[in-house]
Design a protein around this nucleic acid. Structure first.
Length: 496
RNA sequence: UGCCCGUUGGUCAAACUGGUUUAAGACGUCGCCCUCUCAAGGCGGAGCUACGAGUUCGAGUCUCGUACGGGUAACCA
């Protein structure tokens, strides 16, 4: 049974790609809606025409879809409460603004940006919090009219400010943070609700839209806490009931300890980047949910359906969480190992092509070979793009062996093993993993060299790495010719 | 600086309204095992209630203070 009372929204501004923090906000709203069988709505907040970017909206929606979200109402699917772009909702704002004006709950303000700037500077110098100072303070009605006429005569275009009630407490029971309260005197003075270009500001538009769209719950980032009292004032001015608010902690950077900012380079910021690197959307979804929310039991790997079922907004964390990319990789690897083969092969194949390892349109034989290669790397791959690095030896002739790997094979037995191995595989009637394994075992029998002394030289000589997937299979995939070549090179190098 | 919020191990975090938990679990880290090698996998170890008071028979859980951290102070959202 659907719950018509529960309506939540994700309201991005189309200023760029989908940021990981916003994705998280979207996901938690989505989970909430689906858990309670309510509606999930997307609304585009594009009142800042200067900051909107061309494909911003499309990119936001595409990435949300990629993460596996779907919505009941939105700019692309419509709905009964449209339009779903704020820029198209001017007609719904104007009468509301007029009402506020008529009731003197809002007024035209002529202070210029320069004046405001100077005001703030001066206040800062005095050590007080920067705030807007009422420009008609102490004036009689006539004086006020004169001041306005004067400003108009100078050609100044006004903004509209909301008259903030004096010394009034605004409070709410936050779904995440508990009880929060603000004194109206501490929020910075009368704030702008309509900009000079006639567009409403965010703080006004959200309230009007959330009310008109009958939004019941608002889950958003912690950075909106300070906006909430302003919005509450507007609800109050209209006599509307405010939705329930839940302010989720922010994701902070491990590097700076501050909220993830676009400039932070230690963490990939945008969903798109993970998409491109070949992360699995379900894994990313899983990881993001675990950031600031915890399930009841001890497991941590869940699919979307399970999350929807388990979701409980009271388990949202109050304190900020650090983005741990190591854990993301681990989660992704879990998914890589458990996804069906075709999905992984398809994604990894695309990375190999993108990385220039395989031709644009590989033939069937190549695909078959690649399938085996990808399969071999599945246990250790965390995201698909890694295969280009990991499997490099399959495509290019490696450079000289160095470092630990070189030390490992600079001994008496390594050349013995390598020579024997080279000799034997030349003769092999069938060059496959079974035969290769037999070959290695026969060397063990004949030379009495075993374990690490036996396997490491071969691995290093052939792959130049000390770690990697199953050796016999890897050697089969590299092929006899290249294997022999690598063996010879290595022998040359260590015998010099 | 004002206002708001937070603080359990390196990281994410559990512990319902104060009372068996030796303070779960996961990532990471370390060690061991497995195996023909490394990885993967299995097993195990180390590691935390910021500090100081108070309330209470009893505090990670409540109160106050300190410290630290975050958010916010736009004609951005």
């Amino acid at each position: 049974m659907a719950n018509n009372k529960i309506r939540v929204r994700y309201a991005p501004s189309p200023t760029g790609h989908l940021h990981i923090g916003n994705a998280r906000t979207a996901i938690f709203n989505y989970l909430f809606a689906r858990h309670y069988k309510g509606k999930f709505i997307i609304r585009i907040e594009d009142t800042d025409t200067k900051r909107n970017v061309a494909d911003g909206e499309k990119s936001q929606l595409d990435n949300l879809k990629w993460l596996g979200l779907d919505w009941d109402e939105g700019p692309d699917v419509g709905g009964d409460f449209g339009p779903y772009r704020q820029s198209e909702r001017r007609a719904t704002y104007d009468p509301l603004i007029q009402k506020l004006l008529d009731e003197d709950k809002a007024y035209y303000s002529y202070k210029t940006e320069e004046e405001l700037e100077a005001e703030r500077e001066e206040q800062k110098a005095r050590g007080v919090m920067p705030h807007y100072e009422y420009e008609f303070a102490g004036m009689t009605e006539d004086e006020r009219k004169a001041a306005i006429a004067d400003a108009e005569a100078k050609g100044l275009k006004p903004v509209i400010r909301f008259r903030v009630p004096k010394d009034h407490t605004y409070e709410w029971d936050d779904l995440v943070k508990g009880h929060v309260s603000f004194n109206s005197d501490s929020i910075g003075g009368d704030f702008v609700i309509v900009k000079r270009d006639g567009m409403p500001t965010y703080n006004f538009a959200v309230v009007a839209d959330d009310h008109n769209m009958q939004i019941s719950h608002v889950f958003r980032g912690d950075d909106h806490v300070a906006n909430t009292p302003k919005q509450l004032m507007i609800y109050e001015a209209f006599g509307w009931q405010a939705p329930k608010f839940g302010h989720m902690s922010l994701i902070i950077s491990a590097d700076t300890g501050k909220k993830l900012s676009k400039r932070d380079e230690t963490v990939l910021q945008f969903i798109e980047q993970y998409h491109e690197l070949g992360y699995l959307p379900d894994a990313l979804f899983n990881f993001i949910v675990l950031l600031g929310w915890s399930p009841v039991g001890e497991d941590e790997i869940f699919n979307q359906r399970q999350f929807i079922k388990m979701y409980d907004e009271s388990r949202l964390s109050k304190s900020p969480a650090t983005f741990d990319s190591k854990k993301l990789e681990w989660i992704n690897n879990q998914y890589v190992k458990n996804s069906d083969e075709d999905t992984i092969v398809d994604l990894a194949l695309r990375q190999l092509i993108k990385g220039g390892k395989l031709p644009e349109n590989p033939d069937a034989l190549t695909i078959e070979w690649a399938r085996k290669l990808i399969d071999v790397y599945r246990p250790q791959m965390s995201y698909m793009a890694q295969i280009n690095e990991m499997a490099n030896v399959f495509f290019e002739d490696p450079e000289l062996i160095k470092g630990d790997a070189l030390e490992e094979i600079e001994n008496e037995t390594a050349p013995v093993v390598l020579k024997a191995f080279a000799e034997k595989i030349k003769e092999l009637p069938i060059f496959d993993k079974v035969e290769i394994l037999k070959t290695i075992k026969s060397i063990q029998k004949e030379t009495k060299i075993k374990g690490r002394q036996l396997w490491m030289p071969i691995r290093i000589a052939v792959t130049h790495e000390m770690e990697g997937p199953e050796l016999p299979e890897s050697i089969e995939l590299i092929g006899r010719e290249k294997t022999l070549k690598h063996l010879q090179q290595t022998l040359d190098q260590i015998s010099k």
